[in-house]
Nucleic acid binder design. Structure first.
Lengths: 122, 122
DNA sequence: GACATGTGTCAGACTTTTCTTACATACGAC
DNA sequence: GTCGTATGTAAGAAAAGTCTGACACATGTC
């Protein structure tokens, strides 16, 4: 049951980039850490973590875009709409060799301008 | 021979943040991928990767600061100073549980202002 | 000397990310 | 109705990251 490469999707360059970008922020690590204890809804999470709700919303967006977190809007018993988030059970394993294998799947570096004869660049 | 937690140093919150921040860039992934094939000096690396040397220098700084890369200034046979970089053989493994364990080692979120009675935040 | 190679670094522009403040909606209870 | 909870989003400021172009130095060859 352990050790899937990267649970939800195949590990490609862009996926690794999104995942690392999402993990490269203390707030988002805290959020993921909190969600590792179980699902939670955003207003509660904002209170628990001591951050503003719009800010938390933004970070959750980024985590969700990276596939590290999953959100689901539910209707509570009393009828109020509550959005629960949970951590996707991912397992990200990165080594220099893994990265080398992913390099070919990276987006093109940048339009290499023709007629480029700069001295320091080429 | 495989599976060290995180080769060079213990995996703490700040270390993970630095590592992910360093990995969250296509140029730096390319650099690491190239160095996975073996050590190389920066001017050569800049040519191979098709990027300017100052830019490569900046990215190498960040990779080195994160402990993912190691540089060594050497004196070539003909006397020229050449700086070689090599990839540190790290193995970064991240899961929600790992993150939860690291949360306590993260830097303080932000000075939680006393007397905070904002409506949206609390 | 001029020219090639190698090194490092700075200043400024540009882009992206981060964060707050303010607004909008909907529902239930009083 | 008002108050409390929940949701989402937009505008703008502030900070961080990215990148280029121009410097500086040293060495070896011509």
């Amino acid at each position: 049951m352990p050790s899937e490469e990267f649970s939800p999707q195949a590990l490609t360059g862009p996926v690794l980039l999104a995942a690392c970008g999402a993990l490269a922020n203390p707030h988002r690590l805290r959020i993921l850490g909190a969600l590792a204890d179980g699902r939670q809804y955003v207003s509660r999470l904002a209170r628990d973590l001591g951050m503003s709700r719009p800010l938390l919303h933004m970070h959750l967006q980024k985590l969700q875009a990276a596939g590290l977190v999953r959100g689901e809007l539910e209707l509570a018993e009393d009828g109020r709409a509550v959005k629960y988030f949970e951590a996707v059970p991912f397992a990200l394993e990165v080594t220099p060799q893994v990265i080398r294998a992913l390099v070919p799947t990276l987006p093109d570096p940048a339009p290499p301008r023709a007629g480029d004869k700069g001295k320091d660049t080429e």
